[in-house]
Write a protein that binds this DNA or RNA. Sequence first.
DNA 1: TTGTGTTTTATTGCCTCC
DNA 2: GGAGGCAATAAAACACAA
Length: 492
Amino acid sequence: MEESNELHSEENKTSQDNNNKKRKLKTPAQLMALEKFYNEHKYPTEEMKSQVAEQLGLSEKQISGWFCHRRLKDKRLSRDETCANGRQDRSSGVIQDRASGLGQDSCGSTKHGDHRYVDPREVESRRLSGHDFPAADITREYRSHYTERVGGMDNTSSESSSSLQDRFFTQNEDPYDVETSRYLAHNGVFSPINPRGTENMAYKPSGYLKVKGEAENAAITAVKRQLGRHYQEDGPPLGVEFDLLPPGAFESPIIDSVHEPSIVGNPVLHSPDISGVKGQLSPRTRYEVYNSKFSSQDLYIQQENPCIMHGFDLQEKKSSKKLRQKSTYLNHTNSSPGKNSSLDIYDKSVGGTSAYNTNRKDKMRSKRGYSGRKVTSEQTEPCLREYDGVSSPKLIQRSDYMKPKPSSSIEENLDGECKATKVYSNPLRVMMNSTDEMVVAKQARVNLPQRDYSTNSFPQLPPRKNQIKGTAMEMPSSFSEDETAETNSSVD
DNA sequence: TTGTGTTTTATTGCCTCC
DNA sequence: GGAGGCAATAAAACACAA
């Protein structure tokens, strides 16, 4: 370890020297890890930074710089996005709240006024005091709880994730949220809290939502969210009082998804919440692009499910101008909808943004994001190793992922060694979970086409030796346990 | 192959907080 | 005053079209 540190420092030295003249791109592995970590901790502590630096073989300075720039990037994207959404919302006659109920500042984004900074305690108090809270916000709340827990520190700034991703995950595919909602569903308490739960289960856009375009769905959804309690008067509150899930509803998703697509339908196509995210750029970064590359080679690309013509994919088709140029990208995404996880989700987000393609970034995303940059063998370095052989645990992971289960058994299944890790004392452990998440996601996409549970998965995360032996199961497992206590107490 | 546009990385200066 | 963060800037890396 020390040796490697020395090596790292040596490398850093040289790299620093080199950086004087040439900047050095982060390897995909590093980027993945950084992004993953960034999702958990926007403002890592010094300790965490050094740990990450050590693990990734970068200098703390680089880490700090990267985080700094990453935040800037987030901010910039968020600003652009907010502006875009504001325009869009106004154009559709919808107030631009974006369901957060907070931070209605338009393009301005201040550190503390930012909508991202939702004090979990406030959320909790509001919920407990009976204030209505949009489902998405409730989801966020749980996510926040979890994130804090993960960090093992009360860090509101690490409330996690880029605003974009955060929102995206909140309304879309955050695996944590999924897990949360799943857990909740499992306990029959807040089962449909998660919009995805509704998507997965029974929610289908009713009436006009079915007919309207997704862009309008977004607007409608926004209105619904703003109506809040008022909207509930005439019907079941959005995402709150749906029928409880039957026990074990998620336990046999493979069969369900494959054989009962008509029941499940295609939630994406008429998912108000998904639609609500339209226009929300997910901060696609290079690692995601790399992911797409990696994923494109994945075995599961063969197992595409024609049922999954995601709404955003469809929109991609509709939003056409890019199609002509980037037919490769579209082929890539559309032809293999079930192929991967993270990218696919990001594809959705990107596709969603394509609804108003005026955004330059959208152009770029379709322009280059999917082709990605060159991935040299050197760059991919630690990324892909070890995962070729991980095929059998997929189903295990997946099914285990679906239900709150003791993490120990899961980990045992995955690693063949029992690691009863419950807390992410090591932030990188969190990062490393992504590897298996991807596997889970792949399987999920194949077997459970209606939803992808592993949005935030960063496949092929480099399994550094001293890093995380953890698995994707650790996160949801510990999460479930934590949430078990917390949810029970809060509900009680 | 080259030019262009975009993204990413590194550096620097300023600001805020402790 | 130091540390940390933000913002601006320059430059490298990259993709893509001509």
